[in-house]
Each structure stands twice: as C-alpha cells, then as structure tokens.
Design a protein around this nucleic acid. Structure first.
Lengths: 229, 229
DNA sequence: AGAATAGTGTCTCTGAGACACTATGTT
DNA sequence: AACATAGTGTCTCAGAGACACTATTCT
C-alpha cells in the first residue's frame, strides 16, 4: 500500500493582510530576511511550530504577532496552495489566510522592511504570492457586498457613515444612504452602542459595533477573536 | 515522546465525495484497511506522492481513482484541517476536498468496503471527518441555491425537470417550475443540446448540458474538468 | 438662525413567487 | 381524442434604488 514516494512536503502558513488606507485596499508586505528570495517583498508567513501551534490559524496569528506586534487580528482561512514548483526548496504546501485590520491598528511608520501597497500596483512577489493576493481580494470583494468582512477594516466603534464609506471603498462604487442603511439593518450584523461620535463637526452620529463577537455566519468563526496572549 | 516528525507535520488529502441517491444527499465512505482506526468507515484519503502529484487536487484525484476507479470527478478544495490532536500519529494537516458525482457513475454494487450513507445518518467516523462532512454539506447547500454545484450530480445531459429535482433534493424544498426556469436561465450556466429525452413517457423534454466546460464563476475552476493523467 | 451633517419617508420599478394557462408528445 | 408531462404568460407583492424630506447639533 503506502510506499511514501519521498517524504513529506514543506508546510508553511501565509497571510494576505489587507487594510484600507486613503480609500484604497492595501496589502501589507514584508521584506524577506532569509533565502530564498531574500530582500524581496513577500507575504508574511512562516513555518508551523509543532510544539506550540494549535492549528494553522494559530500559527499564522503567531507569525503576524512576531512580525507586526499585533494580536487579535481578524483571520479566516483562504485556500491552500501546493505543488512541486511554487517553492524552490521543493514540493510545498502553504495554507493561506486572509487577515483584515483597521489601518489605525498599525503604527504610522511601519519601518523599512514592512510596507503597504495598493493591491492594484503590487511589486514583484515571489512564490505564488500574487495568486494568493488575487484570491484574497476577490474573496473580500465577492463576499463584501453582503457580508460583514469590510467591518473588520474599522475600529470597534464606528458610525453608519464610516461603515458606508468602507463598503464603498472596498467595492469601488458609491450608493444611496437610505438604501445602505436598510441593507445593513437587514443583515443584522451591527448594533448601536448608545454613544455618539462627537468630533466637533456638526450633528453627532450614532456609534455602532459588530454584534456577535464571533462575527457573522459561515466561515468567519475560524481564527476570529483569539483570546490568546 | 511521540512520532512527531519534529519539523514538518503529517500531510494528507481527503475527499468528501457526495452523490444523490433516492433523493437524499449521500456520502461515500470507505473502510480503512490500515491503522489507525483500521476497519472504521472513513473518508477516502491518503498521502501525497511528491514524485507524481502536481498539487493536492491531483493527489486526491489519484486517490479517488485508485479507490473507486473513477476519473474526471468534479473537485474543489474545501478547507484545510490541522492540529496536533486530529490524528493520533501526530501533528497533521489534511487538505479536504469536496467531490461531487452522479450516482449513475458509481457501480450499482459498491462492494464490502465502500458504502453510501445518508449525510443525516452517519456512522462514527475517525479523525475530524465529521467536521469535514459538515463543512462540505454546508458548502453544497449554501452555494447550491444559486450556483452550479448541484449540476454535478447529473450526467452530462439532463432535462429541466431532472435539474429542478436535483436542486430540490439538495435544498430540501420544492419550488415553482416557472420560477425555477427563470432563475436557471439568469444564471446562464446551461445550454440546450438540441436533442430530446424520449423515455417512453409522454411529451419528451429538451436536453441541456453545462455551458462552460470550466463550470461557473468563482471557486469552481480549481480541480474542475481535469484532462488528467 | 443658519450651516452642515445625520437620518427617514416614500415613489417607482424590477424581479421573484404563485398560478393558470398553452404546447406537444404518447397511447 | 384523451391524457400526461413540458413549458410559458402574467398578476401580484416585496424589496432595492432614487430622491426629497426631516432631525439634531454646532457656530
């Protein structure tokens, strides 16, 4: 029966970490400090630590923590990429994850080896990172129209106007205010906090938050809240 | 200390192979011939063959070919399951796939170590196969309402009435004929073959086929038609 | 009070479901 | 011709977009 043809493949985890900056969907890339492709802009990723990771979501959460200092990032599994050629080190499997984060959770200055890039103007990336990014953006846009994914780009409290702006930035189209509010209400994913956003302008807006801590319905519960360290 | 391969986890591929029999969604399980869980009903699955598999989809296609003799099965990647506890042999990663097949493509008699089970009355399954099955059925039902997934349960040629029956079997609810035809037309996924199905009953029905060989839109192109070998 | 932004009421038009009808084959 | 199943026409109602209106706060 099993005559293992060789041994096991290399296994890694990667994250397509997206955020919104200047009304553009941007991706966080990181300069590789090791071979292969040392010095190239690439997705944050790394190996599993079999002695500490509970699953691949925890593994990528750990990697992101180590590379960006952030915890409690919204994560969901995207797709697994595999094959003999995608990594020059040999037959490999990469479990790719979608990560979403408000721009304000990142430091203003990211440093020299971390950068945010408009997803429509990407630098050359190694491996199949381009495919992973395309997959992630397509997931965001595809489900974005009627899911709670874009909410992850906002801080915990936000106004309806903020929310509408985010959806429009993600989908690249503007819409009617009244229709938007109706649609969001029917999705039943946010609730009023009771507070108001008074930012010195004119009439203050009501503040909302995501309803269930565990986000929406289908895939989302995966690597979501992470009560982790 | 356990067999832990220290650096890399065990990597396997599994398939949740679904079909439709007697208007029920059924899953193909297979009696394990090896440890662990020898003799238990489990998902068909196996190891990667690094010297012959081009990716995980090809790997699971090869496994299914070896276990059922079938080629050209509709496949799409489902999700990757991982963790230290899901397999007693150690930290493991399983890339799970959804496979759909017409009942008529399977032999009438499946033999003693292959069985079809109603997805609502599953036998005990080892590993996290129960989770994988739930995930697959939920994907089928979730996307089934407006995707071309259920078409994969039918042979290459089928009538509108056949098609409606399949959707209703999958979703578990009946609907209006006129509405159904309008919805399917708007999806633009099938086309008339020009032939008629004359099965000795009364008026013959027009025959249809899936439009693009590459199925629908979003995820489906993954492991789809497979001009394999 | 007036300006500016937040938030709502409502008209219309489209699209889905319900249901009755027509069409075309078999016996 | 009668019948059974395939396939279509159309009515109605609910929901989405467009747009004008009202509400609340700041200066």
């Amino acid at each position: 029966m099993e005559t293992s043809s060789e041994r096991y493949p290399i296994v890694t985890v990667d994250a397509v970490l997206l955020t919104l900056e200047e009304h553009q969907v941007k991706i966080l890339l990181h300069r590789r400090s090791n071979a292969p492709f040392e010095g190239a802009w690439a997705l944050p990723g790394g190996y599993l630590h079999l002695d500490e990771d509970a699953d691949t979501s925890e593994a990528i959460a750990r990697v992101l923590h180590d590379k960006t200092g952030l915890d409690d990032i919204y994560l969901e599994q995207l797709k697994t990429f595999s094959g003999p050629a995608r990594d020059p080190r040999g037959w490999s499997v990469s479990v790719s994850h979608l990560a979403l984060i408000p721009r304000s959770d990142l430091p203003d200055d990211l440093g020299a080896d971390v950068g945010l890039f408009d997803v429509r103007k990407l630098p050359k990336t190694p491996f199949d990172h381009g495919d992973q990014i395309r997959e992630a953006v397509s997931r965001l846009r595809g489900k974005g129209a009627y899911s709670s994914l874009p909410v992850q780009f906002l801080p915990a409290q936000f106004t309806m106007v903020d929310l509408q702006q985010v959806y429009e930035d993600v989908l690249g189209e503007t819409g009617d205010q009244s229709s938007f509010r109706r649609k969001i209400s029917s999705l039943d994913i946010i609730e009023e906090t009771g507070d108001l956003a008074r930012e010195g302008r004119r009439r203050p807006a009501a503040l909302y938050r995501l309803k269930a801590p565990g986000r929406t319905f289908d895939q989302s519960l995966k690597g979501a809240p992470r009560g982790k360290t």
